[in-house]
Design a protein around this nucleic acid. Structure first.
Lengths: 346, 346
DNA sequence: GTCGCAAATGTAAACCTTTACATTGCTGTG
DNA sequence: CACAGCAATGTAAAGGTTTACATTTGCGAC
């Protein structure tokens, strides 16, 4: 049996109210009384029961973080950024992964309801109706990269469109014309935005983005690896592969190497997200930089804004810019292969 | 105001006991009553208050996972393995990082007390007295790679000694004699064990492990990077660097490249842990394989063992074997440099 | 010495569930 | 028809806090 506040009270010869007061920033308790109570608390190693406290206070000091997946450094960085921000406020993190499954999302959300003071939800793949339906009411919620038609919740969205467009333009500037992309799958907001950016860049420069050069992945290394196997089955290889995240780019590089292709001399590869390890792989990975851990921290801090200044009812919609991060996995291609390319596209 | 069980009861025209019974696997409730209650519950989107439930049931359906850090793929894999295992049981994870700071550990532990049904704690750096003192009593606890003199808790420990010894022997077999190590810092169990293994392998083969070849890191990439800067300041460079985890090995490789050294032709590098990305960096990283995500899952499953079969009072102490994972970052060195080396050591 | 007032402390209700025990209502048997 | 017995449901206590309100204490002023 854990000791309760009554045990402390009786042992200290005071009432439970006094103990409670000592515990909570203490209203006005005589210094001597406080000392005595504190001594007993330490002696008994008493700690208030969070369930009882939560029951009456309606406050848990925990924030829920629901991510689509836990594979790879992207999510690990999100968690790290969020944990740091949360710890700064003496709060804690309840982490869950949904595998993009509406049922799991619902289960996690139900679990969190009443256990957390707010929720940060990242779910690029589930459509907004399902989401909105399951979102607990009366709880601050920050949507991270969610498909969000309505403006009822705070949102943080990465500029996938702009980032992908910029990257595509960079590749075009290097002379690439046959640029294959590896997407993150259907109905995935992040993937769709990046695809939109890629296509827009192509179209803006009067190239027709070929559907045959768009390959479907799912943001995992293995899917990048497998996409390359398909890409290499093409009669005319692309000169560049733009994977819609770094994990797939890393998988792609492995597959390309296995086929004896050198990067970037034989083929250029680039990714998206700029996960920390991208600097260390060889060749170092050209990518679209996203401030990943900041994203986690931003979401948490937004949550705290809500939690403290409750007056502020206006939802905030943050659009996070990206920036090209040029390293050594992409190369300017020769005029000859360039021409060969134009020919293919035409 | 969230609706409570009373609202449901009155709306359904039954007592709260009946609602509760319907909610919890239902004892014996007439089918018709159950239906009606269920209908109301759905209509009102009622969900029981976890705090109230936790208060009376003393059960939270959450497991605490306290890690020393959240940087890098090692911990991300631990979390992933743990989350998968936990989700299989309908439980959830409360994750926290301690930064190896006793105060933060204490705070996290205090926070978890009453909020979780069990705790998985990884803390290779904090000594056992402090730990033992702060560990909540009456809660199943699994210690992961903790310095653990006593046998009162379940423990899971990686065979750092054996793994490091094996790796060192491998390097010796390749002809290396001047082998520098980058450790994980003082008082870190993992680091100490690996250092012990390294030294033992050297001594067993009648080489004296030189203290001047032991460099102190802290398991982060940057510390591996910085250690190499020191290593290269040595008059006689080592022919191999054994970093005590992969992150430091990755940092070391970056530093070596910056100094114009080729790996493995100029110098061999190896790590420990075999994090997933090791396969993808170049050269692919020779490492000591640790089943990282399994470790997380094992810990959680051990916790559930405890939670279900309470009878079983014997603590389990699992020793996780490692296995050498040879890739391409280490190379056999020539007889000449080999001889040159022996000379240096002598 | 008494009174008043403020400071310090105590009492009890409220938070929302689960569940042991009490009660109701019904079925079937003698 | 009465009643035993059981199934279904209801009542109320318990769990550990916080806090509004009530009470006590102590002190200064008259």
């Amino acid at each position: 049996m854990r000791s309760s506040i009554v045990d402390v009270a009786s042992k200290a010869g005071v009432s439970i109210a006094t103990v409670s007061r000592v515990l909570n920033g203490s209203d006005k308790v005589k210094a001597k009384t406080r000392e005595k109570v504190l001594a007993v608390i330490n002696e008994m190693k008493y700690a208030p029961n969070p369930a009882a406290r939560g029951l009456i206070m309606k406050k848990t000091e925990a924030i829920g973080l629901l991510l689509p997946d836990l594979h790879g450094e992207f999510f690990s960085e999100i968690i790290r950024g969020a944990d740091e921000a949360v710890q700064q406020q003496g709060y804690h993190l309840i982490v869950s992964s949904s595998h993009n499954d509406p049922n799991e999302i619902e289960a996690a959300l139900r679990f969190m309801r009443g256990r957390v003071d707010a929720i940060v939800l990242m779910s690029p793949q589930v459509n907004s109706e399902i989401l909105l339906e399951n979102l607990p009411k009366g709880l601050p919620i920050v949507l991270l990269n969610c498909r969000t038609d309505n403006t009822h919740y705070d949102t943080i969205v990465i500029d996938g469109y702009g980032g992908a467009k910029e990257m595509t333009n960079y590749l075009l500037d290097l002379g690439h014309r046959r640029i294959a992309v590896i997407t993150g799958g259907e109905n995935n907001l992040e993937s769709e935005e990046r695809l939109r950016g890629y296509r827009a860049a192509m179209t803006d420069r009067n190239f027709t983005p070929a559907r045959t050069l768009e390959f479907t992945g799912n943001f995992t290394e293995i899917s990048g690896y497998e996409a390359v196997k398909q890409i290499l089955a093409l009669k005319h290889h692309p000169t560049a592969i733009f994977a819609f995240n770094d994990s797939m780019a890393i998988g792609a590089i492995k597959a390309l190497r296995e086929e004896g292709l050198r990067i970037p001399s034989d083929i250029s590869v680039c990714g998206f997200d700029d996960i920390p390890v991208g600097k260390y792989i060889s060749p170092s990975l050209t990518s679209v930089h996203v401030p990943i851990s900041d994203l986690g921290a931003m979401a948490i801090n937004r949550v705290f804004d809500r939690l403290t200044k409750r007056t502020r009812d206006t939802t905030a919609h943050v659009f996070v810019p990206t920036k090209l991060c040029l390293r050594s996995s992409c190369k300017k291609i020769t005029l000859m292969s360039n021409l060969e390319k134009e020919e293919n596209v035409a």
